[in-house]
Design a protein around this nucleic acid. Sequence first.
DNA 1: ATGTTACGGTAACGCTCGTTACGTTAACGT
DNA 2: ACGTTAACGTAACGAGCGTTACCGTAACAT
Lengths: 222, 222
Amino acid sequence: MARPRDIDAHRQRLSAATWAVLAQGGLTGLTVRAVAERAGCTTGLVMHTFADKAALLRHARTLLHQRTAEGAEQAEATATDPRSRLHAVLTQAVTVTDEKREEARVWIAYTAAAVADPELAELHRTHNRAFLARIDRLLSDALPHLADDVRADAAVTLVALVEGLNTLAALDPTTYHTDTQHRAVDDILTRLAAAHPHEHASGPAPLDPGPPGPTALGDQLP
Amino acid sequence: MARPRDIDAHRQRLSAATWAVLAQGGLTGLTVRAVAERAGCTTGLVMHTFADKAALLRHARTLLHQRTAEGAEQAEATATDPRSRLHAVLTQAVTVTDEKREEARVWIAYTAAAVADPELAELHRTHNRAFLARIDRLLSDALPHLADDVRADAAVTLVALVEGLNTLAALDPTTYHTDTQHRAVDDILTRLAAAHPHEHASGPAPLDPGPPGPTALGDQLP
DNA sequence: ATGTTACGGTAACGCTCGTTACGTTAACGT
DNA sequence: ACGTTAACGTAACGAGCGTTACCGTAACAT
């Protein structure tokens, strides 16, 4: 035996290099050579660590999702009551930091790659549905007065809003500022905390604010 | 003189071919040869019609925006009252047809390309801000009771929602169905038609529905 | 009818890509 | 200390890319 290697550490390092390359050069700038140079090694190590370029892409994609899931998990664990948990997870998802700025650009690249790559598309669906389920769960805890179908639609709305805000902010941070994104999320949550306008499609809106009061979410702004 | 050509017609045909290639093969599948084959010509015509590949991309991008702007213009012209105008433009933007399905995939490709291409990023900002301004104008006509800052945030929310819904629907049409998207847009509009929860940060919501009644937008569902 | 003109096709260039075959070298058991 | 073994680098291959130079040819003016 000779020269053992920590292959998982290599995979992680190369995945991080893949993110960096994607963030800087976009999808067309992603080459095995660029990843190797970014990781401080040669293409030899890359091809010995992954079967091919597609495997590298998939691994980096999965690791990226794990990182975002950890962020949501932490936000969820930090908050105390159900409403602030929902608020914390969504706010964290649209808060722009140096780390998240890169993440958004990488996210866009993977979205585009998934259009033509069925395996990446399947990964996208799995991960996105997990996030959607998380928001739905947080919604049912935070706003139990919402009917199931209304809540499902609200979850879709919130997930799409986060997706859209991050995409637009990545390309136009001037127009889509962090403050604007926070206000957008807070506004939706505040309106959801109020009763649904035509609940069960019966009569007009009952306008029932719910037990904790309608301004509970809005008051949590920084 | 000899052999005149309609260069604008060629540009349009090649741009349409570019969309088709982008929709099918994604950003990495976009090659001059693929565009030429799709358009039924050779790379020679492509390079005689455009200075280089980037010019072809930019032209197709601008033409795509013009097409989407026309769609919004038609929806706006068809509707009669201010509220249905806003509703029609947003609904049309998230309605999935064969044409729009391709459009969404092309849109994603351009978004990813803009991450690494400053010129495409500038085009994106210009066009997106134009759409944002349109929504803001339609909002001020449809819901005049909204304060300027509230309306601006609402416009950002609606644009981001449309962007997010289209992106997610392109990759997961099962989870993000056309009906779901319509309900998401309608729901936001209905909630916006109600008064803002903490208007001017003064007291609680005045809950003033406005002249045409609070359910005017919700009732316009198909 | 015919010469002229430029439109569009052909084919090749240089380059870079993903991938592979091979050589080098570093770390372990003995 | 040293041979062995596998990890990693090196270098080259074939394919495909954007781009260019060149040529055939179709359409107009005369």
